[in-house]
């Protein structure tokens, strides 16, 4: 089955260490909420603002999830130190989009997928099926692992430790002009590659429409 998605807008952000200028103070005026946000949450909120998100349903993807919170918890258990409730509540894969829904008071469906290096492809496939309801959707994939022990985990030797890509889409019957060809982007987490490929192609295409095969 093939479903065509019209790319209404898209944005990509990445950094070798931490993404700068995520406009946190403007986008998250409440200090208490801002202080609780994880790195991936800040990137997700920034990307949503850049693609013109207006409380659409959200399909989010992350291969590694909340790496810092996860490692903080496991180290705390290993060292028998007090476990932080905030670390635990921020450790689930849907943390970034939960904060986004709270911040934007979005009561619609939010779902999160995680399939290692196919994560962004899973976001696209999930989005394609859900788009058949004919509303606009926010598709987003973020991975952020600029953490203390990154050299122990970074076996692919990625240079971009934080990256995220987002797009607003809607289903269309029009002919596709973008196809997923599994391009590689060595410096960026493979979990983002398929969406990143579409983002780059959409930048150079008039009225970009991607074909998603299920």
């Amino acid at each position: 089955m093939k479903i065509n998605l019209k790319i209404l807008s898209s944005h990509f952000v990445s950094a070798t260490d931490k993404c700068e200028n995520l406009e946190e103070k403007t986008l998250v005026p409440k200090m208490m909420l801002r202080r609780r946000l994880t790195r991936a949450s800040k990137i997700a909120i920034f990307l949503a603002s850049k693609v013109g998100y207006k409380n659409e349903r959200i399909i989010f993807g992350s291969a590694y999830g909340e790496a810092k919170a996860t490692i903080d918890i496991i180290e705390s258990i290993y060292n028998k130190t007090l476990l932080s409730p905030t670390a635990f509540q921020n450790s689930v894969h849907n943390t970034p989009v939960s904060y986004l829904s709270i911040l934007s008071e979005n009561t619609k469906e939010v779902t999160t997928v995680s399939d290692l290096f196919d994560t962004s492809l899973s976001v696209l496939k999930t989005g394609a099926i859900k788009a058949l309801k004919k509303d606009k959707l926010l598709l987003m994939s973020v991975d952020a692992f600029s953490i203390d022990k990154v050299e122990e985990l970074n076996k692919c030797k990625l240079t971009e430790l934080e990256s995220g890509v987002a797009m607003l889409v809607e289903v269309t019957q029009d002919k596709a002009n973008i196809f997923v060809e599994n391009e590689t982007f060595a410096e960026t987490s493979p979990s983002l590659w398929q969406m990143l490929e579409i983002h780059h192609k959409a930048q150079n295409t008039q009225n970009p429409i991607v074909e998603i095969e299920l």
Binding site: M1, H93, T111, T112, V113, S114, T126, K130, L214
Partner: peptide
């Protein structure tokens, strides 16, 4: 596809399964 939304993870997988079958995929 793996869904991970904490305690609703497999419910969201069920929701998607219905959508896949409804679509005839």
């Amino acid at each position: 596809i793996t869904f991970s939304t904490a305690c609703t993870s497999s419910s969201n997988a069920l929701v998607f399964a219905k959508e896949l079958l409804d679509a005839g995929a």
